[in-house]
């Protein structure tokens, strides 16, 4: 009886190894997202799929995160460059309220009001910064 138990442990260890993803994925989510958007822009479907699957690994139990990512990447083909535009701008440190507004609309169309909260937070922060600068 002990042999199959040992075999089971070997299987477990092997399975864990094969399943292992990179550590510290939390902050990498955005990077994968960017990579996926960039791939779509370059018509590289394989790259986009890879990015989605990496996002899925991070948020395996979060249906919203998963679907949001997959839907955004998929529907991006139809929504004219709205989201990646703002992602690119954000990355380069430009926080333009108009771009946020476009992103909020795009996210709403893709996944509803709930999906827009983070972008609305971003817009709120940008406006707050602008108002503080004026003062």
């Amino acid at each position: 009886m002990i042999r199959p138990v040992i075999l089971m442990f070997i299987l477990m260890t092997a399975s864990l190894k094969s399943y292992a993803a990179e550590p510290g994925q939390g902050p990498q989510l955005q990077a994968y997202f960017q990579a996926g958007l960039q791939s779509l822009k370059n018509n590289d479907m394989n790259g986009a799929v890879n990015a989605v699957m990496k996002i899925k690994q991070i948020d395996a139990n979060d249906i919203r995160g998963y679907f949001l990512a997959i839907q955004v990447l998929w529907k991006m083909q139809k929504l004219p460059d709205l989201i990646w535009e703002i992602e690119r701008a954000e990355k380069s440190g430009i926080h333009n309220p108009d771009l946020y507004k476009q992103k909020i609309l795009a996210l709403f169309l893709v996944d509803g009001f709930m999906a827009t909260y983070d972008a609305l937070d971003g817009l709120e922060k940008t406006l707050r910064d602008e108002q503080e600068q004026k003062l």
Binding site: S15, G24, P27, D62
Partner: peptide, 13 residues
């Protein structure tokens, strides 16, 4: 930084 929820089958392993 790693707040990934573990897959439950992996949890049992």
């Amino acid at each position: 930084s790693n707040y990934r929820v573990i897959d439950e089958a992996v949890l049992y392993f």
